[in-house]
Write a protein that binds this DNA or RNA. Structure first.
Length: 271
DNA sequence: ATGGTCGGCAACCGA
């Protein structure tokens, strides 16, 4: 048997509830990590998602902005949130699994991240949001270094950076666009190296193939213009990396009625 | 070259 782990920036969990339920029913992932839920914990639609088969739900929400949640068919042993840059932003949620979740999931820790988007101007002097993004990545790097070698772990979420040339529709045209600037890519690569994280999606889908997880709402026809970016990621600790048997971007979900601007990403592991 | 669209929440901010 395999375990399917999914991540999806949902851009309002309340507005997108029908799309989430559709995805869960069609794909039946064991775990779904959501970002940009955009609601406080008390407004999260727990009952509807439990009814869809996900009895175990951890939420780190806040009013109007950001917010992450993790839904699971199997029970959590522990739930933890981290703060970054001395802010109260809800951008991280960790869950871990014990033997009561099954022998395959036991010992796994799953980190769900929503990295700051960084605003429009790729200059930390001129744009405090870009400075915050770089600071956040620096803290992620230090945290990754500390937890390195600390057993079976996954790091998933909207990292808001497309690192490879084939992760964007035009490398040349996006070099000065926030999400694909060299300084962001260097910082993301430093986070990855510090934790010895393996990009399991690119291990399964070769880097010479273009792959996107986000398409702007502003395009007249998102599919026809296909000006996408790969902002959403699934990384594994070294011990788990060899266990990944498949990875996929569920692009069709971007074409459903009233979609999120992000598509879900799914990795399947044989644990 | 520029502006284009969403969501939250009640005027714009953030993406």
């Amino acid at each position: 048997m395999t375990v399917a782990i999914a991540t999806w920036n949902i851009n309002s969990v309340r507005l997108r509830l029908p799309q989430i339920v559709r995805f869960l029913k069609e794909r039946r992932p064991d775990i779904l990590c959501l970002q940009e839920i955009k609601c406080p914990n008390e407004h999260f639609p727990i009952a509807a998602l439990r009814e869809a088969g996900y009895a175990h739900i951890a939420v780190n929400g806040q009013k109007a902005y950001h917010g992450v949640a993790t839904l699971s068919r199997r029970p959590f042993a522990e739930v933890e949130t981290l703060s970054f840059c001395g802010k109260q932003d809800a951008r991280h949620l960790a869950v871990s699994f014990g033997v009561e979740a099954g022998a395959d999931l036991a010992g796994l820790t799953l980190h769900n991240f929503y990295v700051p988007a960084g605003g429009d101007i790729p200059d930390p002097q001129a744009n405090v949001k870009f400075a915050h993004k770089l600071d956040f990545l620096a803290e992620m790097r230090a945290w990754s270094r500390r937890r390195r070698g600390d057993g079976a772990a996954l790091l998933v979420g909207d990292l808001n950076i497309a690192p490879l040339e084939t992760d964007v529709w035009s490398h040349r045209q996006l070099l000065r666009v926030v999400s694909h600037t060299p300084v962001e890519v260097e910082n993301l690569n430093a986070v990855q190296a510090a934790g010895a994280w393996v990009d399991v999606v690119r291990a399964e889908i070769p880097p010479d193939q273009r792959l996107y997880t986000w398409w702007s709402y502003r395009a007249r026809d998102w599919a026809a213009s296909d000006r996408g970016r790969r902002l959403d990621h699934i990384w594994a600790s070294p011990a788990l990396a060899g266990r990944v048997v498949a990875a996929e971007v569920v692009k069709e979900a971007r074409g459903w009625p009233r979609p999120s601007d992000h598509a879900p990403v799914v990795a399947r592991l044989k644990l």
